[in-house]
Simulated assay, not measured.
Amino acid sequence: MSEFIFVLIGAALVNHLVLSLPALAGTPPGARLRFIGPATALLILLAAPLSWLLQRQLQAFDLGYLHLMLVLPLLATLAWGIQVLILRWQRPEQPLDGLLPLLLGNGAGLGALLAGTSAESFPIALTLGLGGGLGFWLILQLLNDLFERVEQCDVPTPFRGAPLQLICTGLMGMAFLGLNGLGAA
C-alpha cells in the first residue's frame, strides 16, 4: 500500500514535466485555466492506464514498436471526447476556442507516454495517472495564482508579458525541483 502512496505523491509533486513545457508559459488565466486544469487531469487519469494496456497488448504480439503510432490517435480521441464532455457541462459563453491542441499537448505526452509505459502493473499506471493529473492541476493553479500576484505588482516594461511568465515558470520549476527525492528510500 505504501508503494501506491509513494507513486501518487511522486507523480503529483516530483516526477511531473509540466513546468518544462513551452506552451505553459502562454497559458491563459481565468476561465480558460478553469477548463484546462480539470480537463487535462481527466485526460492524464484516463490516458496513463489506457496507454499501459495498449503497450501490454502490443508486447504480447511482439509489436511494442507500434505503441507511439497507436497511442497518439487514442489520445487525440480522448482529448476530443473530454473537451466535448466538459463543453456540455460548462457555460456556453466561456471562450474555449483552440483548447484541443493545448489540452492534447499538455496532457497526452505527459500522462500517457511517460507514466503509462513505466508502470509495472495496471493499478500503478492508474495511480500514476491520478497523481500526474492532480499534480498538473495543482501546478496550473499555483502558476495562475503567481501570475495574478505579479500582475498587481509594478513591473518594468521590458519584463511584462512573456518574459515575466517565463521567469515565473522557471522559479516554479526550481521550487518543485526541491521536492526531488521525496519518498526515496
Rank of each mutant, 00 (worst) to 15 (best):
G30A: 07
F176M: 08
L113D: 04
D97K: 14
A125R: 01
A47G: 10
I167Q: 00
A115C: 08
L46P: 11
T157D: 15
G116T: 05
A47W: 02
I9E: 02
N15W: 15
L78M: 11
L43S: 12
F147I: 03
F61L: 15
I139Q: 11
T27V: 12
H67K: 08
M174R: 08
L42T: 12
V71P: 01
L138G: 07
V84I: 13
A31Y: 11
E148G: 03
T27W: 05
F4L: 15
L58F: 04
G30V: 11
G129W: 07
F122E: 07
P28H: 12
V18R: 05
P123V: 05
G129N: 06
A48M: 02
T157N: 10
L54R: 02
E93F: 05
A79K: 10
L13N: 00
A162E: 13
I124R: 12
F147H: 12
R88N: 07
R149I: 06
F136I: 04
L33T: 09
L87E: 15
L142K: 00
A112L: 05
F6A: 14
S2C: 00
R56T: 11
N180P: 00
S20L: 11
A185T: 06
Q94T: 15
P92A: 07
N15H: 14
V14R: 14
M69K: 04
C153Y: 09
L100C: 10
Q83Y: 08
A119Y: 07
G30R: 09
H67G: 03
M174W: 11
L99G: 06
M172P: 01
F6Q: 15
L13V: 00
A125N: 01
F4P: 01
T169L: 15
R149E: 04
P158H: 01
L177Y: 10
L50Y: 03
E93R: 02
L143A: 04
A175K: 02
L146V: 14
G132Q: 14
L103D: 05
T117A: 15
G10F: 02
L177N: 06
Q94M: 14
